[in-house]
Design a protein around this nucleic acid. Structure first.
Lengths: 229, 229
DNA sequence: TGCGGCAAACTGGTATGGAAGTATACATGT
DNA sequence: ACATGTATACTTCCATACCAGTTTGCCGCA
């Protein structure tokens, strides 16, 4: 009798470090912590009521995501938005999303016609209510669903990691183009359901490349958040 | 676990934690640390002659790369090779490499005809000398060069991160197909120089997908290193 | 011989102290 | 007034100590 197989998932309990990292990430992406701000381990530790060690581990994690810049013995600062980095992230994201959307379109034969409807509706509702947070959450959910439909949901983890670089720009965009986004999502969804990978790819590229033009406007309106380059 | 020596190069590398991480990564990829081995912070710390803290940070980093599995209060183990994970990594890598190789081919107009020659030669030399380490280093250099030629060298960082999952398989392959690899590299290089993105893409996909068939042979010869799935 | 229970020896997570490096305010000397 | 040295107050990085689970193995007992 093999009892050892019955053990339940002991994995998922989040550590303090992980929670701190997540909380800081939200603060940075929502510009609560502003680009250029300097923070310190002890400062954040005191604010959360924990010791410096888990905060330090959170810092390291965020530095690897490109959100913090740790300068030993000097300071740790929230990195300013870099147009170059944003475009690089967009390039990677586009490569990944094109790969999954093509696959989703090629294998869409036995999908119900209304797989996307629920998301369209809730995103439209969020737009009508001017609820940006909900809107962006549904935006992410749409892209994630495509990855799942392609049988490569794990790719979303990477897309999400890249997205971090773009999220602050998206936050600054806010109302810019909520309805437009929904229209593009519909185009992509229809191309998938019609089993047309080339068309799905084209719509996806166009959708993702909107940021290329947006980012310069955003920069001009928020110079202080951007790196000079 | 049973290792003779573990040490980091005393020069370069900013923090102890990073040096430990790099050293451990090499040990894992070269199967010095075997899949399934359990290691502990204090154990490794003693071997390197440092405290647990930097080792712990190295563990966290390697866990994020999918090489270690940290089970709080229980143990930390070197994860076994998972065919699924390897194929997932291959999928991502393919998406990225296709994107850069197409771009490189599309913009190859003003490249000197011999950009790749040096690498071809040194890789052939490494193959003739049965020098696997050098061969693999040149293999990586070739792919990295393509990313650079496309103007997106930063993508290499991601490709490299994905590659970690495949490197242990590559290590087990060893002699399998060194000459074949060179032939494929030449095909890719020629397609780039002839400015043919579609052909370059096709050769790249074929090149990267070799692992799909190889991995099952490797698994059958090294069951103990693989996860049952 | 086999089983149950308990204590000691692990594990990773967190807290805290100290070392080394850097920036800065402020004296001091010319 | 203006350099220059210095004390001081930061910073991150590493070491050490402690905590709370988990595993292991021994011991007593049936």
């Amino acid at each position: 009798m093999n009892i050892s197989k019955l053990e339940f998932d002991t994995e998922a309990r989040p550590t303090i470090a992980k929670r701190i990292a997540e909380s800081l990430r939200d603060a940075i992406v929502s510009l609560e912590l502003k680009p250029g701000d300097t923070i310190s381990e002890s400062d954040i530790a005191a604010r959360f009521g924990v010791s410096r060690q888990p905060v330090r581990e959170a810092f390291i994690q965020l530095a690897e995501q490109g959100l913090l810049r740790i300068r030993p013995q000097r300071s740790t600062e929230v990195v300013r938005i870099s147009i170059r980095d944003v475009l690089n992230a967009r390039f990677v994201r586009e490569a990944l999303e094109v790969a999954v959307v093509r696959k989703a379109a090629a294998e869409s034969a036995d999908l119900p016609d209304d797989v996307f409807e629920e998301l369209y509706r809730s995103q439209t509702a969020a737009s009508d209510a001017n609820d940006y947070r909900a809107f962006h959450a549904k935006d992410d959910a749409f892209h994630r669903l495509i990855a799942k439909l392609s049988g490569n949901e794990f790719v979303w983890k990477l897309i999400d990691a890249q997205k971090v670089q773009m999220d602050r720009v998206r936050f600054l965009s806010l109302k810019l183009g909520m309805p437009g986004t929904i229209r593009e999502h519909r185009d992509i969804g229809e191309a998938i359901l019609s089993g047309n990978p080339d068309l799905a790819e084209a719509h996806m590229r166009k959708h993702l490349r909107k940021i290329d033009t947006q980012i310069h406007q955003i920069r001009d309106l928020n110079r202080e958040y951007f790196q000079e380059e």
